[in-house]
Simulated assay, not measured.
Amino acid sequence: MDAAVSFEPLRPRLIRVAYRMLGSVADAEDMVQEAFLRWMGADRASVREPEAFLRRVVTRLCLDRLKSAAHRHETYVGPWLPEPIVETEEEQADDISLPLMLALERLSPLERAAFLLHDVFGVDFDEVADTIGRDPAACRQLASRARSHIRESRPRFPVARERGLEIASAFFAASRTGDLQGLRAMLADDVVMQSDGGGKRAAARWPFVGIDEILRVHKGLARLFAKGMSKVLHYGLINGLPGFVTLEADGELQTTALQIDGDRITAIYIVRNPDKLSRLGREMLH
């Protein structure tokens, strides 16, 4: 069979694996394209399970990339957040939300690979072992450690999709009009806000923690918002969380994703780095 004919149906699934490993669509696409080049040069007739073979290649390429990514994150300006993905309901099946992706960042590359392959993508431990070069028992331990690290990232009382979008809409209205009482009613006492500008757009270089601190920040932001209108382009799930995409007064895109536990917002994730929004801009502005 032609290399492209056998590869293309698998490309979306391979990109999902790579994106969950790397947090960047561009990097994920690069890894999958490299896997395609290797597929073209492989003895394809001897490969019994092309998807398993290619998943193994992509995972190994991602593990190599993570070694250099660790250095990039260390030198990144301000908080690092994954590239935002605006998802449909059908794309939520793997249950990897933005907080879980941040939790994955704190794992070792092998823990991340073992957890994603087994717990998220349903790969058995024999194949995981073959992929990452460890025996199955070690892979079980890696996945178990990963599970214990990320368990705390899951909300105790997950919010339904529609309710989450209602809260996102109310949050946008209150934050942009300076309705501090409305915001206070929505925020958890220990709420955290992170904004990722990558040193390329104005953004806080550290997280804001606690309801009083975040209300203080929004009081100041309300004065800025009053000078120029921002427009909501889309309400929806962003990396599994309710949120919205806006066109800001400076003509640039921004995404805001809200982690909600029960009816209270426990975390606010804002991406402003234009490098991480260029793909989204092509989809929404053209």
Score class of each variant (00 low, 15 high):
136 P>T: 05
115 F>W: 04
60 R>W: 05
2 D>P: 15
87 E>S: 01
42 A>E: 10
258 L>G: 10
261 D>Q: 10
88 T>I: 00
162 E>D: 13
256 T>Y: 00
4 A>E: 09
13 R>F: 03
98 L>D: 01
123 V>F: 08
166 E>S: 15
60 R>M: 06
158 P>G: 08
286 H>K: 01
178 G>T: 02
180 L>N: 03
248 E>A: 11
99 P>L: 03
80 W>S: 11
148 S>F: 07
18 A>C: 12
142 L>W: 09
282 R>T: 00
237 L>Y: 04
28 A>L: 08
40 M>K: 15
280 L>I: 10
40 M>F: 10
57 V>F: 08
147 R>T: 13
150 I>P: 06
122 G>M: 08
247 L>I: 06
14 L>R: 06
72 R>N: 01
211 I>W: 06
48 R>Y: 05
134 R>C: 08
40 M>C: 13
259 Q>E: 06
261 D>G: 09
66 L>E: 02
2 D>I: 07
49 E>G: 02
17 V>S: 01
7 F>L: 05
220 G>V: 02
166 E>Y: 12
172 F>M: 03
235 Y>T: 01
234 H>P: 06
214 I>F: 02
270 I>Q: 13
212 D>G: 01
268 I>W: 09
175 S>T: 14
283 E>S: 06
134 R>S: 08
179 D>M: 00
14 L>H: 02
277 L>D: 01
4 A>I: 06
258 L>M: 05
282 R>E: 00
119 D>Y: 11
285 L>W: 00
114 A>E: 02
256 T>R: 01
80 W>Q: 13
217 V>K: 05
176 R>A: 10
42 A>V: 05
72 R>P: 01
52 A>Y: 04
108 S>T: 08
203 A>H: 14
272 R>W: 07
105 E>R: 06
5 V>G: 05
147 R>W: 04
153 S>G: 10
278 S>H: 09
180 L>F: 02
260 I>H: 05
154 R>S: 07
55 R>A: 04
17 V>A: 02
149 H>D: 02
246 T>I: 01
128 V>R: 04
202 A>D: 13
100 L>R: 15
87 E>G: 03
55 R>N: 04
240 G>M: 07
122 G>R: 11
86 V>T: 14
183 L>F: 07
176 R>N: 08
209 V>L: 11
50 P>K: 02
56 R>A: 11
269 Y>W: 01
75 T>N: 12
86 V>K: 14
247 L>Y: 02
273 N>Y: 11
284 M>L: 15
268 I>C: 04
225 F>Y: 15
202 A>W: 13
160 A>P: 03
87 E>D: 00
1 M>L: 02
151 R>L: 07
43 D>I: 12
123 V>A: 05
84 P>T: 10
37 L>V: 15
28 A>F: 03
77 V>Y: 10
170 A>V: 12
194 Q>K: 13
110 L>D: 14
83 E>R: 01
237 L>V: 04
211 I>K: 15
53 F>V: 13
234 H>S: 12
67 K>H: 11
285 L>F: 00
36 F>I: 11
166 E>F: 07
182 G>M: 04
149 H>V: 07
145 R>A: 11
48 R>S: 14
